[in-house]
Simulated assay, not measured.
Amino acid sequence: MFGFIFWRSRHGPLDRLSRLLVPMAGCFLLGGCSTLDYYQQLARGQFALLRAREPVAQTIADPRTAPTLRARLVDAQQARTFASEQLGLPDNRSYRLYADIHRPYVVWNLFATPEFSLEPVQHCFPIAGCVAYRGYYQQGRARGAAALMRLQGLDVYLGGVEAYSTLGWFDDPILSSMVGWDSERLASLIFHELAHQLIYAPGDTAFNESYATFVEQEGTRQWRRARSLPPLEQAPEAKQAAFVQLVLGLRDHLGALYAQPMAPMVMRARKAALIEQFRRDYRQLRDSIWQGKGPYDSWVQGPINNAKLLPFGLYDQYVPAFARLYERAGQNWRAFHEAVRSLAGQSAEARQRALQALLAEGSV
């Protein structure tokens, strides 16, 4: 992620939410942040991360390394080699390094919207373009910034991020916040993040995340075949998609509500009613798909506002279009990446038209 960065046994919508792109290195290198204090915390946080890195081989060889960590890192290095040799992804030191950060999240992402709008408060950076959040290396700072935004009447959501990419500005390490995942989930994240390093269109989150998600999903399928593992009986994405569609439905209903002229108190009440209806709909979905406790229960039962809905749809919107492009490229990764790079070089309008055409072609 450069990724919500939210989820999965592989990744779910909540894993990806938590991984949402945090390319902060370019920001402090080029001086694009809005306040000196924010600029300084980015620099301190990134450089602390750089200092904590060491070669994965060194961690594996260290007799003090826990056996479970050693096994996870060995598997990750096999996936890392596969990424470059078989998927056409960058061959560099990223994810060949390890960093123990001594905390559960590397950064905390802060999202905000007006109370009656689904448009995010945007933050613009020289390399990454404009994104719908700010990242903080210290949870206390993130909470303080969130409190100030709430005082301004904004809807706010704060989510922890276990991993992020610097788009190749630095050699990104495997973080201690990632090694509690199973080996396949860690491999999938490596494929996703290396795709961001290879191709990135500034300011176009849907394009970037859909491309990286396709590489992640198809790369993971091929990684399973390479290890003689059977295909998953039911792709986790199918169940995740049902939940995402439910969330997108709520977002559509809220958007229609906000377009109506009405007093704030009335709109606030109707907003709360739509959210409660969404919770009822989720319980029905959960009972039909998961037959009881579902993977999104805690997310749904917690406070819901506009800001919490922002990341949904960013990862999957154009995945079928990239699948079609991969087929056009003869399932050749090099040719596929070149076609994607060509799209990234077009204007945002031309790029969207091309992706929509691919979506339409794939649905025929």
Rank of each mutant, 00 (worst) to 15 (best):
R134L: 00
A187N: 00
Q260W: 11
S228W: 13
C130R: 00
G160R: 03
Q139A: 04
T220E: 05
R141H: 15
W181R: 15
P231C: 05
V131P: 00
P126M: 12
A142V: 00
T213E: 09
V179D: 02
Q138P: 11
Q197V: 08
G219Y: 10
M265A: 15
L189E: 04
P202Y: 07
V247F: 05
Q217K: 15
S165W: 12
D204I: 04
R141C: 14
A238M: 00
T213I: 03
I174Q: 09
H196S: 04
M265P: 06
E162I: 13
V156P: 10
L257V: 05
Y133F: 14
H192N: 09
G140K: 14
I190G: 07
T205Q: 10
R221L: 00
P236K: 05
R143H: 12
L158P: 01
G129D: 09
L198C: 12
G140W: 11
V131Y: 11
A269I: 13
E193L: 07
L254T: 11
L158D: 01
L154S: 06
G159A: 15
F243K: 06
M267T: 13
P264G: 05
V266Q: 10
A147D: 08
K239M: 01
V266N: 12
S210W: 00
M267N: 10
A163C: 05
V266C: 03
L175W: 07
D252V: 15
T205E: 04
P231A: 06
L246N: 04
Y133N: 08
V266Y: 03
A212L: 09
T205D: 00
R270T: 12
S176M: 03
E218I: 14
V247N: 10
A269M: 13
A241G: 07
L151M: 12
A242Q: 08
V244N: 06
G153Y: 03
G129L: 05
